[in-house]
Design a protein around this nucleic acid. Structure first.
Length: 462
RNA sequence: GCCAAGGUGGCGGAACGGCCACGCAAUUGCCUGCAGAGCAAUACCAAACCGGUUCGACUCCGGUCCUUGGCUCCA
């Protein structure tokens, strides 16, 4: 199994530190606002990574932080006139709901920054003791000049990192030095050896990973924009405080999600939240959309491509529906075509896993599924299908769908405010009309139901 | 300026030194009472441009042009 490692810029054979256990950390959200579809892209991608590792027999511990202390949270809380804790809990709750809707269910533990302040303080203390950090009137800073590897992940040398957009704190020795502890006399503050204050941006992640994983672990993930400075800072803090290198064996980064070819940002007004997305498209269609591009590539969100994904998903769901229908009438017989079909099923699984083994190539893995879909349509089109083959096929779709977090099921009618029984009743009456060849009325029923988003697809009248 | 990724058919999007990706959309045929679903077939040289290597390049090498992202807010 190969994983592309941002640190080395190469695909590397995946070998966890502890035989078949995988410790994996992905940077979670700062909970000051609704989660957007960029978050969704990244977390769906890593959900599939975790699912696949588990499928491959690894014991996966997937840890994610929730940053609930930050300038933006404080600012937003003040705007809304609520405490930072209230604000953070509100958006944390909404974030978890969104993830649940999107089928992101592989995370083993969510860890709040504010629940790990003692560990954060402890780590900062060690950094000062070892001479990697220094205190000024405004806070505690990491001295980048003491850590020559700073910049390795983003492939930059420390002296090239002199540009800055935000005016650096004047008490810092070097503009590239970053904050570990901010001295603040605000409501949201903790006691520390350096007086009241709160953690800097990067330290919560290394304190959390050290708590649960120790100084070294297997996979650290996040979106590309976190490579610098966030992940560089994490490496510096963790490796300097523990003395162990490397902190992380495999660095994985997802590509950005753009909207209509533009970066998503509040100032451009193209900021789309997960909730907004889900009023227009199904979570499953969005997952398919995300997985049809490799996780490292940028992906462009447009209405058109989501429509495409919706239809693509229907192609698979329609097949699974047909397989289930055939199951009802199938007999325990075997046919000539069976052997070939069973071989195709096995071969599809093999190719699917081969694609996933190659740095989680979900796009290629999906093409294997679509090839199989066509083969199965051919198979059941011959009207001779054995129960054995059909159930093997259905099991395979459940198995592979489970890896991708896709269910391949038709939308249930219940969601539309109609009970299944009522729809069944209408179907039965309409079927009688069709037997009498009352096409006018049966077509009208079909059209009217379509207006209600109930799609009727007829088979041959016997 | 520095660093990184990339330019593939009408669209989305993979792999690969020579063979059909796959999906969506389109056209035709089959099937169907019709529609849908589905099957089959078709789409002039699909590969940003210019050189080179090679029997052969979308795929390798060199150069040019362009796009996007990061450079301490950011999944």
């Amino acid at each position: 199994m190969m994983i592309y490692n941002t640190m080395t810029g190469n695909k590397e054979a995946f070998e966890p530190i502890h035989r078949n256990r995988v410790n994996m950390f992905v940077c979670g959200p700062t909970v000051y606002d609704e989660a957007h579809i960029g978050h969704a892209r990244t977390y769906i991608a890593f959900d599939v990574v975790a699912r696949y590792l588990a499928y491959r027999g690894f014991g996966v511990f997937y840890l994610q932080n929730v940053t609930d202390v930050d300038d933006k949270i404080i600012k937003r809380g003040a705007e809304l006139g609520i405490t930072t804790a209230e604000l953070a809990r509100r958006f944390e709750g909404r974030y978890l709901e969104d993830m649940c809707t999107l089928g992101v269910e592989s995370v083993s533990l969510y860890a709040r920054a504010t629940n790990h302040v003692p560990e954060i303080i402890d780590q900062i203390k060690r950094l000062i003791e070892k001479g990697y950090a220094y205190e000024t009137e405004t806070g505690v800073y990491f001295d980048v000049s003491k850590f020559p590897e700073f910049g390795a992940l983003s492939h930059q040398t420390p002296d090239s990192l002199t540009k800055h957009r935000i005016e650096p704190d004047p008490t810092k020795r070097n503009p590239a030095d970053f904050s570990l502890w901010k001295k603040r006399e605000e409501k949201l503050a903790w006691d520390s050896p350096w007086g009241k204050g709160r953690p800097g941006w990067h330290i919560e992640d290394t304190a959390i990973t050290e708590t649960y994983f120790g100084p070294q672990y297997d996979i650290h993930g996040g979106a590309r924009d976190l490579i610098f400075p966030h992940h560089e800072a994490e490496i510096a803090q963790a490796e300097a405080s523990s003395g162990k290198k490397p902190m992380v064996k495999y660095w994985m980064h997802t590509g950005f999600l753009n909207i209509n070819g533009e970066k998503m940002s509040k100032s451009l007004g193209n900021f789309t939240t997960i909730r907004d997305l889900l009023t227009r498209f199904s979570p499953q269609a969005f997952r398919l959309f995300v997985l049809s591009t490799h996780y490292r590539s940028p992906i462009d969100f447009t209405e058109g491509s989501l429509d495409q994904s919706t239809r693509s998903l229907e192609r698979i769901s329609n097949l699974v529906q047909s397989l289930n229908d055939h199951m009802k009438n199938a007999v325990m017989e075997s046919y000539e075509a069976d052997e070939e079909m069973v071989r195709a099923l096995e071969s599809a699984r093999g190719k699917f896993l081969e694609a996933m083994d190659d740095d989680f190539n979900t796009s290629l893995a999906l093409s294997v599924i679509f090839d199989l879909v066509r083969d199965l349509y051919r198979y059941i089109g011959d009207e001779k299908s054995s129960k054995n083959v059909l159930s093997q096929a259905l099991n395979l779709f459940a198995e592979l769908g489970g890896i991708l977090g896709l269910e391949f099921k038709a939308q249930p009618a219940g969601k539309l405010g109609l009970t299944d029984d009522l729809v069944e009743l209408i179907m039965e009456i309409r079927q009688k009309l069709r037997e009498r060849k009352d096409w006018m009325l049966s077509d009208e029923i079909r059209d009217r139901l379509r207006d209600l988003k109930v799609i009727v697809e007829d088979k041959k009248v016997k």
